[in-house]
Amino acid sequence: MRITSKGSVFSIELFFAFLVCVLILAAALRSEALMLFGSSQNSKQFFLEEKTIMLADALVKNRNAEQPLAGSAFFDSEKRTVISNLVDSSLLNSAKPAKFGNVEVFEISLQRKNQRPEIILSNPLPSGNCVSVKRFVVLQETSEKAIVGVIACEN
């Protein structure tokens, strides 16, 4: 091999060096892409969990007669205040399916202490990501302690 005045000769050493450089760059870019993809998946999961936690919190702390999923706490008319963690089970039983942005509530369950869970609202679960959150409450009608379960999934 030799270098001529009219052009350059691509030497074998330079060729191997170039090949190794390209392989390293490809591995670095792939690693970066995987990390970014993992981050975006983590972000999606994070937002789904965050929204489900907020939905369950609203359900046990607020009162919304038009949308019981957004609030089923008992309203004390004497004190004129909503009592958090005291659930109006008649209002909760009238809950209808609802979407909150890109999150949809698919199941609401109620498990009284020492009893099996009973399903109040149920839709077939989609194949995507779902998150389950449980909150401890007292049922206003019967003064029983119970756990309200909420399952929400991505649209």
Binding site: V60, I83, S84, N85, R135, F136, V137
Partner: peptide, 12 residues
Amino acid sequence: QKSNDLLKVWAL
């Protein structure tokens, strides 16, 4: 949140 639920229910 779950811990606070317990405390609230016990207060009720």
